[in-house]
C-alpha cells in the first residue's frame, strides 16, 4: 500500500434504501496505478458502492475523498475525471454506436474533430467499425458492452470504475480489455474492478476487497489473502469467507427439485 500514493479514499460509506442497509460503513483506499478487485456475491452491495463512487447515488452516510477533498464539494469536477462502465447495458437504443459516443464526447466537451477521429479509431480497434452506424438496438450484448467501455475511456479518465465490464465480451475482446486495463494502471490510473469472475480478478488485480452483506470482510493483496486464509486459490479463499453453505449440497437440492 505504501507504494501507492493514495488518491481516492472511501470513509465509512453507508447506503440505506428505506430500512434496508445495503452498504454498511465501508472504508478503503484506492491508489494511483492500482487495480483493485471488488468481490462479493449477488446483493452484497458492490454495484451500490460503485454507483456512490460515480456520484449517481448519494451516500446515506460517510464520505468519498479525492486527493484529500470531499468529492461532494466539487462533484462536477470529480465527474470529469471518472470513467464508468455500468453493470447493465443501459444505453440509448435509438442511437447508433457512433452517435452515442459522439453524444458522450460532446457532453464531456471534446472537440468534434478530435472526437470523431478518436471514435473511428476506437471503433476500429474494438472491431465495431463496420457496425458503428447501426442502431444500438440491433447490437448484441457484447457490442453494447464495447460501446460502454469506449464511452468510459473516451476522455482519458483518471479513475475507472468498472462494474462487470467483461459481461458478454468475446474471448479476444476480454484479452484485449485485460491488457488495456493493465496499461491504464501503468499510466497511473485508479481502477476499481467490480466482478464475480474470480479468475480474472486474481490475474488482473493487485489488491482485492471482499464485501458481503454490505460489509467488508477482507482487503488485501491476492497473495496475502491466499497465505492468510491458507487456501491455494482466491476462489477457495472467497468461498471460505463468503459462502456459508455446502455448494455441492445446494446444487444437489436444485437438481432434485428439477427432477421432481
Amino acid at each position: 500500500m505504501d507504494l501507492y500514493l493514495i488518491m481516492l479514499e472511501i470513509r465509512e460509506l453507508t447506503k440505506r434504501f428505506g430500512h434496508k442497509l445495503v452498504v454498511n460503513r465501508v472504508s478503503f483506499t484506492l491508489g494511483k496505478g492500482e487495480i483493485v478487485g471488488y468481490l462479493g456475491p449477488n446483493g452484497a452491495g458492490k454495484s451500490t458502492t460503485v454507483k456512490m463512487l460515480t456520484g449517481l447515488l448519494e451516500p446515506s452516510f460517510g464520505e468519498i475523498l479525492y486527493n484529500g477533498k470531499n468529492i461532494e464539494k466539487n462533484m462536477i469536477s470529480y465527474k470529469k475525471i471518472i470513467g464508468y462502465v455500468p453493470e447493465e447495458s443501459e444505453i440509448y437504443p435509438h442511437l447508433s454506436g457512433f452517435e452515442y459516443l459522439q453524444l458522450v464526447g460532446r457532453l464531456r466537451g471534446i472537440d468534434d474533430r478530435i472526437l470523431e477521429e478518436k471514435i473511428e479509431h476506437l471503433m476500429n480497434l474494438f472491431k465495431l467499425y463496420g457496425s458503428m452506424h447501426f442502431y444500438i438496438s440491433s447490437y448484441s450484448k457484447g457490442m453494447r458492452q464495447k460501446v460502454l467501455i469506449m464511452a468510459a475511456i473516451l476522455h482519458n479518465p483518471e479513475i475507472l470504475l468498472l462494474d462487470e465490464p467483461l459481461s458478454g465480451l468475446d474471448v479476444m475482446s476480454v484479452l484485449v480489455f485485460k491488457d488495456l486495463i493493465k496499461k491504464m494502471a501503468e499510466a497511473g490510473k485508479i481502477i476499481l474492478y467490480n466482478s464475480h469472475i474470480l479468475e480474472v480478478v486474481e490475474k488482473l488485480c493487485s489488491r482485492v476487497i471482499i464485501i458481503h452483506k454490505g460489509k467488508i470482510l477482507a482487503d488485501d493483496s491476492v497473495k496475502n489473502l491466499r497465505v492468510l486464509s491458507k487456501f491455494p486459490s482466491l476462489e477457495e479463499a472467497f468461498s471460505n469467507l463468503v459462502i456459508k453453505g455446502d455448494t455441492e449440497k445446494i446444487a444437489g437440492e436444485i437438481f432434485e427439485t428439477i427432477v421432481g
Binding site: 449517481l56 464508468y84 440509448y92 458522450v104 464531456r108
Partner: peptide, 16 residues
C-alpha cells in the same frame, strides 16, 4: 423519457 435507465450518462457528464 426514451430510455430512463440510460439517462445516467447525462448525470455522469454534467457541467457546472
Amino acid at each position: 423519457p426514451v430510455s430512463p435507465s440510460s439517462n445516467w450518462i447525462f448525470r455522469l457528464t454534467e457541467n457546472k
